[in-house]
Structure formats: structure tokens, C-alpha cells
Design a protein around this nucleic acid. Sequence first.
DNA 1: TACTGTTTATATATCA
DNA 2: TGATATATAAACAGTA
Length: 293
Amino acid sequence: MPRPGKNSYSDQKPPYSYISLTAMAIQSSAEKMLPLSDIYKFIMDRFPYYRENTQRWQNSLRHNLSFNDCFIKIPRRPDQPGKGSFWALHPDCGDMFENGSFLRRRKRFKVHRADHLASKSPPLIHYYQHQQAKLGLSPPEGMGRFQPYSLNGSPSSGFKHPFAIENIIGRDYKGVVAGGLPLASVMHHLGYPVSGPLGGVVSSVWPHVGMVDAMGAVPPDYGAFGVPVKAMCHPPGQSMPAVPVPIKPAPLTLNPPQICATVSAAAASLLDQTAAASSVVKGSSLHSVLVHS
DNA sequence: TACTGTTTATATATCA
DNA sequence: TGATATATAAACAGTA
């Protein structure tokens, strides 16, 4: 793990794996899926390091998309012009980074062989269907055939994306991080300014996201991170290195059958909520809906 | 033709 | 120390 220093990672390699970066990009989108080109764009917008040697890292990123089961490919419909498919996060990949490292996962997410086909048609299907319906689009070709996500093997925990900002800061916001140490003491130990407001914590944890403002670019909607854009941005000129924070989604209170029964309705409910919430789409809202429904 | 997606291979780092 | 995760390169096929 890179040591925090005075300089940002603006010209250094961010302490995130391609998997992390890709997942961040996907999670940042309102639809929770992005075409490859937009994933590139997200990464380059936020991490200046990746504005160079594009051929190299983009090849690596494509490799990761294909190689890792945690990414699922959502085909375009014929009336959705554009190259390539959309990429989304597999709903079961939420605890990949439970050890808190964005450079190396605890274990590689692997879809059970028997569930492989089903995994390519996850409960996200309902989510995407609703999203596309909201966007005035009908489901992509073939999606209509998909069955509700199979819960065989490992119980699906629904949408528990680790890259939602509230997942990243959630435990810390409550004053707890892995190892039982308060976030403040950990960050202080690492040389970070420890401020009380949530925004300060967020901006310290996600400095790269804030670079956009500092660089004068217009950031897109980061609502999916669960916090207003402004709260995620450093003041111009201020930059801090990232501190990968342990991620562990809150345990679900539903058992798999319950999840299966409610995921579709929950997705629809979430979408209504997100529409009402306009720009702020909480990354784990669906999870919350699942827990509370 | 450039982009997208898949696959294979190799090297390195990290974990158990 | 072996297993595993990640990074990188490269070849190749399909497609807009």
C-alpha cells in the first residue's frame, strides 16, 4: 500500500487495482452500468495518471473486465447505437475487498459454474430493465428471457457495492475501522488531517475524485457515491493521498428467499426514490431498501 | 480502421 | 514456500 505523502497521486499511480477503478466507474453511474468508453473516461477524468499510456492500461482494463466474473456484460439493444456493451458489477461481488485493500482482494470473485449462465442474468436484470424503462428504453435483447437471479451456491446479498462512498466511509463514519481502531486515530497516524465533518472524511478518503474540480473540469453526477458532489471535492489546490478504507457491507437481515422475493420490487422502489432524489443516488439505497422492506 | 472483447502467457506482489 | 491476485503484453476475432 502506498504511503501517504504530501503530494497527491495526481501524477502517480493511484492505489487502486483496475478492478477497483472499473467498479468505481460503474458504481458512479446512475444506471450502475457503463460502456467501456465511459469507464475509460471516468478513470482518466479522475486519475491524471491514466491519461498517459492509455493503450497499456486500457488493454489491462479490458482484460480485467473479461477475466473477472465480478463484471457482467449487458448487451446493447439494436436501437441503442454505439460500440460495445455495457458493463455492470455482479451483485455478489460486494465483499471482494473485505480486507480493506483496493489493491488486492481477499479472494477473487468467481461465479459458480452451475450458476454461470444465471450469473450473467442477475437480479440486476430487473434493475436494468427499470433503469432503461426510466430512460425510455426497453430491455436489451434477450433480457426478457432472464429469470430472477439464482441464489444457488452463495446466498445473494443483493446490491452491496463496495465502491459506494457510503460503504467506504460507512463504518468509519461510525468511528470503527478494521482492527478496531477509530478512523480518526488511523488517519491521524497516517498523517491525515482529521476533521469532524463527514465531508472532510470523504474528501480525505477520495482525493482523486476531488481532483476534477481542482483541474477545472466539470464533474458529472457523482450521486451514486451517495454524497453530494461538493462534499467529495477538495478545495482547489488541496490534495491528499487516498486511504483505502476497509469495506464490509452491513449484514443483510433477509434470508435468500426473501431477497429473491423482494429484489425486484425493491429495485423498482429504489428507482422511484432515486428519481425523487434527482442527482443524489445512494449507492447502497437498494441494500437499504432490502434491509428495511 | 479503430474499437471492443477474449484469451493466453509471463512477471511480480502478496497472502496463508 | 506454494497459491493466488494483479499487472502487463500480445494475438486474434468480431463489429460499428
